[in-house]
């Protein structure tokens, strides 16, 4: 498949939140305000690309070489968790400005299934390293886009009269469903 098609389809057609339904916890938890959504989305973009790079190397140079494919899930969990911890320490020392920008979101996504999901999907599809990174970039940008759209809608919802029983999470879930339906319109554009 064309590299650009992979990138575009990762953002829109196979949007990780709205079409694959991975990582829905921050989708509801971090979409109250646009600034929070941008912080979380940015951290996910950063960590997903880093995690994909390292898990790809892990898969191809350790797991495949020693025929340990059945340990993929647990190994990826350890690698991603360790990586995020390491990156946090590294940023704190070397790039304090980026560290404070990502703030609390960096440790929060250590165990996010969207990050893990991208790492495993990349392996299932058998992409090369460059394509994998591009795919991870597209997916995480899709995450950022969906989160930002949701935050925009929820900021508008704050000024609406909502029946008490629907206020808060219920109306947010309805919005998430409608947004997912809207994104279904991209289906058929690419695989």
């Amino acid at each position: 498949m064309d590299v650009i098609t992979i990138f575009i389809s990762a953002i829109f057609v196979n949007n990780i939140l709205l079409a694959q339904f991975l990582g829905n916890c921050p989708y509801l938890g971090c979409s109250r305000e646009k600034s929070v959504a941008i912080g979380m989305g940015g951290a996910v973009v950063f960590v997903t690309i880093m995690a994909t790079l390292f898990t790809w190397l892990m898969q191809h140079f350790v797991l495949d070489t020693f025929d340990l494919g059945y340990l993929q899930t647990i190994v990826f969990i350890v690698v991603i968790a360790g990586l995020v911890q390491f990156v946090e320490m590294f940023l704190k020392k070397m790039m304090p400005s980026l560290y404070s920008a990502l703030g609390i979101y960096l440790p929060l996504i250590t165990t996010n299934c969207a990050v893990m999901g991208v790492a495993i999907l990349v392996e299932r599809k058998g992409y090369t390293l460059i394509t994998s990174l591009l795919y991870a970039c597209g997916y995480s940008l899709g995450f950022l886009l969906a989160l930002l759209l949701m935050a925009g809608v929820r900021e508008r919802l704050d000024t609406c009269r909502i029946p008490k029983m629907m206020a808060g999470t219920p109306i947010a879930l309805v919005m998430a469903g409608l947004m997912s339906l809207a994104f279904m319109a991209f289906k058929g554009m690419a695989q």
């Binding site: 360790g82 911890q85 390491f86 320490m89 590294f90 704190k92 020392k93 070397m94």
Partner: peptide, 9 residues
Amino acid sequence: ILAAASKIF
């Protein structure tokens, strides 16, 4: 690695 990083950084 993490133990070393916590010392270095």
